[in-house]
């Protein structure tokens, strides 16, 4: 019997380069490289590990975003996913986490009704918003059990056994399938895409093209629940906090700087 897996992924700005426009308080996205959210890659890898282990596993990767997000879907297909779906529509723009999870859940339900879904993987949280809300919200919409912070997973057919990370340890939890799992980086090391699949997936005539679903493909969507209007939360202001305690920047030769650093740490009795 086929194990049907969905992996939700998000395109995010590369963290090292995030800058905030001081005037508008929004992220400067122009010229910023985007990547697949790191936790989502762990989600993808865990799905692929199941595919390695069991004969009949189908992985559908799904993302909501502008057309550029196709890129990370292709990357996931190159890693080994079987199907890629981009949820993209002007109506989706401005969605907060609740509206986003509404849209994703509606798409996932459509897949579930057609071919069934056993496990839905999400990354724990995205590095741009850091909310960690979308995974649990999807579970809520679909009325499924959720285990977040998955650091170890055992698939046991009818159920999953999971180690859920805590600050100083872990909980061991079992849940019936279907289930939503959110993954953390301790879970695995994401694989690199295979070169053959890069040539299958990217380029002008891909063997596995990415499907795009718009609002029209999701007739169950309630227009009042999506996009900016369907979002109960709004970002009022994003800013870089002014640091009250300014750090001192030491310049000069490494050896000299190290010397000054050691001296001042000694003075402060840290060393």
């Amino acid at each position: 019997m086929t194990i049907n897996i969905a992996v939700c992924i998000k395109q995010v700005p590369n963290t090292n380069q995030v800058k905030i426009d001081k005037k508008t308080g929004t992220l400067i996205r122009k010229g910023i490289k985007t990547i697949c959210n790191p936790d989502d890659k762990n989600a993808m890898e865990e799905a692929l590990k199941l595919k390695d282990k069991y004969d009949d596993v189908k992985i559908t990767v799904i993302s909501m975003g502008p057309s550029q997000a196709t890129e990370i879907i292709k990357e996931a297909l190159a890693m080994g996913a079987d199907r890629g779906i981009l949820l993209s529509d002007r109506k989706f723009a401005g969605s907060d986490t609740l509206a986003t999870s509404t849209i994703l859940a509606t798409a996932l339900r459509k897949i579930q009704e057609k071919e069934g879904l056993d496990i839905i993987f999400c990354g724990r949280q995205a590095i741009d918003g850091d909310t960690a809300q979308v995974g649990p919200q999807i579970a809520q919409h679909l009325d499924l059990p959720i285990i977040s912070y998955v650091q170890e997973l055992k698939y046991l057919g009818e159920k999953v056994q999971v180690k859920r990370a805590l600050e100083n340890g872990y909980m061991q939890i079992e849940a019936q399938i279907p289930v939503v799992l959110t993954t953390i980086s301790d879970l695995n090391k994401p694989r690199y895409p295979h070169m053959r699949r890069i040539f299958d997936v990217f380029g002008k005539n891909p063997v596995i093209p990415v499907e795009t679903w718009t609002a029209d493909d999701l007739p169950d969507l309630d227009n009042t629940q999506i996009g900016l209007n369907g979002s109960p939360t709004r970002v009022i202001k994003t800013y870089t906090p002014d640091r009250t305690f300014k750090g001192e920047i030491l310049e000069g030769e490494t050896a000299h700087v190290a010397h000054i650093l050691i001296e001042s740490l000694k003075q402060k009795q840290i060393l």
Binding site: Y192, P193, H194, M195, R196, I198, F199, D200
Partner: peptide, 22 residues
């Protein structure tokens, strides 16, 4: 394992089916 060493070799023989520039 990742098909890097067989990048330009044809799929027909198990290669990655890529091009030489890649």
């Amino acid at each position: 394992k990742l098909g890097i060493s067989s990048l330009p070799l044809p799929k027909k023989y198990g290669g990655s089916g890529g091009n030489y520039l890649a």
